[in-house]
């Protein structure tokens, strides 16, 4: 049973055909499904691993311009996760930035699915949806690292 309903899939496919310009990479850092079903002493199995993977795959199916890369943080993705400092799963890294500066920790269902879509579109258009004044002010004033965390719930 798909997570994204059929009507929504059709609408999104059409929307992406118009809104997406260049390719956008989504990197999903997760645990392999088999591992996530095992109970390892001292570790909690992550029931969200499958949901996160299914959702990412369904999203990538909606446009050939969405390129999905999957990394198993206990397998072939160890190095990539370490390089980006990914310390939780599931983690979606949006775009090609080598430091993975645009992230979503957790599974973006409900309202937050719209966040992922908006960010994918902005990356594809290479246009952050901010006023040019604000972007200019940021260039002038921000010279040190800024880490923003936004805490959300799925509803």
């Amino acid at each position: 049973m798909p997570i994204i309903g059929e009507a929504d899939r059709d609408a999104l496919r059409q929307q992406f055909e118009e809104s997406l310009d260049r390719d956008v990479t989504i990197k999903l850092f997760s645990e392999s499904e088999i591992r996530s079903m095992l109970t390892i002493p001292g570790r909690t199995a992550n029931p969200m691993a499958k949901l996160a993977k299914d959702l990412a795959e369904e999203l990538a199916e909606l446009s050939p311009k969405i390129k999905l890369e999957m990394y198993d943080v206990h397998g072939d993705g160890v190095e990539a996760a370490r390089a980006m400092g990914i310390d939780r799963t599931p983690a979606y890294v949006l775009g090609d930035d080598p430091e993975g500066r645009l992230r979503f920790y957790g599974t973006p269902v409900g309202n937050e699915f719209a966040t992922i879509i908006a960010t994918v579109e902005a990356l594809s258009q290479n246009t952050p949806h901010l006023s040019s004044n604000l972007i200019a002010a940021m260039e002038r004033l921000i010279e040190a690292p800024v880490h923003i965390q936004v805490f959300v719930t799925p509803t």
């Binding site: 430091e99 966040t115 990356l123 972007i135 940021m138 880490h147 923003i148 965390q149 936004v150």
Partner: peptide
């Protein structure tokens, strides 16, 4: 996206 000094993590609490 707009500034290379900024990183943004959204967390589903």
């Amino acid at each position: 996206m707009a500034n290379p000094h900024i990183s943004a993590t959204v967390v589903e609490v």
